[in-house]
Computed example of a mutant assay.
Amino acid sequence: MPHSTTFAVPVVDITAYTSGGGTADERAEVARRMDEACATVGFVQVLGHGIPDATLDGLKDALDAFFTLPLETKKRYRVEGANRGYSPPKSESLSLSLGVESASRMNDLFEAFNIGTEARSFTGLDLSEDDYGINLWPDVADFRPRIEAYFEEAGRVARTLTTIFADALGLPGDFYPSLTDHSVDVLRMNNYAMPEGTATLEGDPTGMGEHTDYGLVTVLWADQVPGLQVLDTQGVWHDVTPVDGAVLVNLGDLTARLTNDRWMSTLHRVMPPLVDGVIQRRRSVAFFHDGNIDAVIATLPSHLDAADGLAYEPILVRDHIRAKLAGSRQGKANTAAVREAARVQAAAERNRPSSE
């Protein structure tokens, strides 16, 4: 199926919000452009984010220092039953977070390392570490301070984006803080490379299966190496590579629920580029801003007339994330992701070769 030549991920410069000097008109224009991007694509190339180059360089060095360790060393940092620590290749299947049965279950080739907010970070609140998770830090020089420095910057960008979202949707300034003042935030570091001990790969391997992100918004740093693909509204997959200096931003399921799909939680996947049967290495780091674990997400009153009058049922953030993680990390198909699964299946039908 040929790709459309008209598809593009919009570029939005958010300097008017990050510089401290943007005028009301400049901020309104950023919010207008963000609204258009979220309503038409669901992915945005964001410039003017303000993440220092030194912080990004430290992030890359930390990734390389960890992922080049021997596989058996990395496996010491697995944390069973929690969204933390190391995930080796072929231990997850992101398509199952949508309830889509992949041809090969638990067969995504990427490896990952996760850290995030902990319940004990929020003093004075009665929160459970079962909902958050305890970070496990590898014994790698300077890994923790470099990752924590990037985590802080990515969190700042995510919170700036929700400020822009509130302006774009005509919401009061305290709307998103009320949903995110003890947010479950996770930083997932991904590495796509040949699994240790593998000489070549056959067939059409999946780096990361088709999925939508779970929460409110994702801030993604990625190498400028091909692999990431997003699904357009016509059911066609398109390659996406970050432009110079940009972070990629995409919306999660909870934002789609808030706007009744007017803003899209866009399906995406990673198909690692193969050169003579060998994966070209690719790194990415996703900061997931998922919202308060005890928040109830309900469609905004202003968007109840979208989607032909249908609306999502209100859902507790805890229940939504648990169902998604049970699919991706435990192999239990998520039966609640009806709309997302239908889009995957429609795309598969559209791209199936004709029998003629």
Rank of each mutant, 00 (worst) to 15 (best):
P2N: 02
F7K: 00
F7P: 00
A8Y: 11
V9K: 11
V11K: 06
I14Q: 04
T18K: 07
T18W: 02
G22F: 03
R27W: 08
E29L: 14
V30C: 05
T40M: 03
G42H: 02
V44D: 04
V44N: 03
P52L: 13
P52Y: 08
D53Y: 12
D57M: 13
D57L: 15
G58C: 11
D61G: 07
F66E: 07
F66S: 04
F66L: 15
F67G: 01
L69F: 06
E72D: 13
K75F: 01
Y77D: 06
Y77M: 01
E80H: 09
N83G: 13
R84M: 02
K90M: 13
K90A: 13
E92T: 08
E92W: 01
S93T: 00
L98Y: 01
S102N: 04
F110Q: 10
A112M: 07
T117C: 15
E118W: 04
R120Y: 09
L125R: 15
E129Q: 14
I134L: 12
P138L: 07
V140E: 03
D142G: 05
F151L: 11
E153R: 11
A154E: 02
V157Y: 08
L161W: 04
L161A: 09
D167H: 02
A168I: 04
G173P: 00
P177L: 10
L179R: 15
L179C: 12
D181Y: 15
S183E: 10
V184W: 03
L187S: 14
M189H: 06
Y192F: 15
A193H: 07
A199T: 14
T200H: 15
T200E: 13
G203C: 05
G203Q: 06
P205L: 03
M208L: 15
G209P: 06
D213S: 14
L216K: 06
L216E: 07
L216P: 12
T218D: 15
A222F: 07
A222T: 14
D223L: 10
G227M: 14
G227N: 11
L231C: 08
H238I: 14
V240C: 14
P242D: 11
P242E: 11
N250H: 13
L258P: 07
T259R: 09
N260A: 04
T266M: 08
L267H: 06
R269I: 06
M271W: 06
L274E: 00
V278R: 14
Q280W: 05
R281L: 03
F287K: 02
F288T: 01
H289P: 08
D290Y: 00
D290Q: 14
D290F: 00
G291V: 10
D294M: 12
T299K: 12
L310F: 08
P314A: 11
V317Y: 11
D319H: 11
A326D: 15
G327V: 01
G327H: 03
G331C: 01
A333K: 00
A337V: 00
V338G: 09
V338M: 08
R339I: 01
R343D: 09
R352P: 00
P353V: 08
